[in-house]
Design a protein around this nucleic acid. Sequence first.
DNA 1: GTTGCTCATACAATCGTTTGCATATCGAAA
DNA 2: TTTCGATATGCAAACGATTGTATGAGCAAC
Lengths: 343, 343
Amino acid sequence: MSNEKEVTIYDLARKLNISVATVSRALKDDPVVSKKTKKKISDLAVEMGYRSNHFARNLRTQRTNTIGVIIPRINSYFMSSVIAGMENIATSEGYNLIISQSSESVEKEVANTITLFNNRVDGLLVSLTYDTDSLAHFDPFIRKKVPLIFFDRTADQKDCTCILINNWKAAYEATTHLISQGRRRIVHLTATQKRNVYIDRLEGYKQALADQRIPFREDYIIVGNLSQEAGAEAASRIREMQPLPDAVFVANDNCAVGCMIALKQMGIRIPEDIAFVGFNNDPVSTVVEPNLTTINYPGYEMGQVAARNLIDHLNGSSNIHSTNTIILRSELILRESSVSRQP
Amino acid sequence: MSNEKEVTIYDLARKLNISVATVSRALKDDPVVSKKTKKKISDLAVEMGYRSNHFARNLRTQRTNTIGVIIPRINSYFMSSVIAGMENIATSEGYNLIISQSSESVEKEVANTITLFNNRVDGLLVSLTYDTDSLAHFDPFIRKKVPLIFFDRTADQKDCTCILINNWKAAYEATTHLISQGRRRIVHLTATQKRNVYIDRLEGYKQALADQRIPFREDYIIVGNLSQEAGAEAASRIREMQPLPDAVFVANDNCAVGCMIALKQMGIRIPEDIAFVGFNNDPVSTVVEPNLTTINYPGYEMGQVAARNLIDHLNGSSNIHSTNTIILRSELILRESSVSRQP
DNA sequence: GTTGCTCATACAATCGTTTGCATATCGAAA
DNA sequence: TTTCGATATGCAAACGATTGTATGAGCAAC
């Protein structure tokens, strides 16, 4: 009982006195097999507890029904929501996900790429590390025409779809909002200017200033790794600025929260002295006091869209060249951290 | 160039005028092949860009090098940390992870189990839903002797390893701490009493009361789904209690935070009027004001241990019968939410 | 020169499917 | 009765590895 042999299509065929070819076709619902035989076969399959052998099939068909995912780290609210969305779609479409973390290390990203290539994933969903410059490690996929989709932290790669929000616009709105609240000396906390998301947010911020005829100041840009600790460090620098800035726009809620807490400990009042706007709509944004104004960034939805899009490509129901960029809706959520007085 | 055929061991063999058997053995570093041939072969493999075909190998060896993971939801800080830990170990050991979410639905858990069984995973790592009663859906794995490890939300299943913290002790310490701060009317927010973690925490809480001769009150136990919203609802019920409780021990930080925020809005002071202790050491616990005393629950480490343990079983380097339960260290972290006056 | 032994390599079956092509069946039209 | 399409089924060759068993080469001892 415990070591029962697996049931194969040969067993089914033998029992019914038909050929394996017919069994194989019947199980795939091939119209060439008659309804009667199909029924006989599928009934017996259930009865004998047959389950198809993915390896044999994959070996034969040269497909894996597996999607590779490479992300910087999984344990952030945003990214785990993305993964949840991907899992949701993939499972319902019969695909498996192989998830690997680069931990913000380019070498690990390259290593993961190789692993996934050797696993012969059917497609790849990628969000890059802060520092990835060269995209050469994706060449093997391109050459073999394995579809590749970037999301969130994307890169310009010919023939690859990108899934994003309009970071420029989000930052523009955030900054404009701060200005509309009477703020003029607006610091921007961001990460390395290698990645689209941070470049675009900075540009949006700059444009908002320009449109309101507020001069841009290089020393108001603080670059870090956007961790909570980086936020606390930035707080010390902000504290030293003369005159004290009256607002901070942060490219990530966690970092914003770290900065807010540190400033509050220094006796600075939020939003009276300094207003804050974050990014991502992380759960902490409704816990910190005052609640943090932020940009809603739909992670779960982004994961779903990415997976759905890739699977559509794989099924041939969409052409990878037809859609090159998908922009998801995002919006500014107003909370107390940035509003000068509540209505 | 773009449609180059995959290089197989046959290609290598032909080029070197030797048999595929030798090539196969050489690539596995089988000592029976001479050093000289091995070198020739591995050099050529690199040169020609050979990569082994997992499906052919799996088909032949009947192993998949894949581990299945079933969890309630991935997008919580604790669970995404667990996954990160698992990914870390699995990747370094050459295993892949297939992660599936049950979303707290027993039906989805069963469906995922079937999917993973059909995927022929080598082993399974499971954290159960709130409501899973029967474990019958795991029988196919047991029968085929596929190792099965439960973590966090575990169940008694013969021959299965469980990985946990000592929930009883953690709750006992948390409650004792509250009592030591002069609290007597301690409410406990928890989840369904079907799962070990919540049962054990309640028992620890009860025992701590008993040891301090404080009568247990059934109406101080509030059962919910431990979401932030459930915390807010609980706050309303707590508010109505006469006399007002003076402490709350919550089985989850997120829920604790929801409850604290709601109570604060009602004008109740924390910790003066009501002290709080949470569970998990989620990042929000250091953001909420006052910072939340909690139990440190090492998610990343738990994921690593679970994966390590399973892989050791699979490699035969450990016997599944030898270790039945692994208890990880946890500890009470004191913060302002429960300490009556700071030193 | 034969025997015996070790070390290295080759042969060939096997794993469970898929699929192009060939074949069988059967009723209807010629 | 023969012929012709359909329609349904079967044959057999892949797919790319692994591995038990057989074979061959080389060499030392007798």
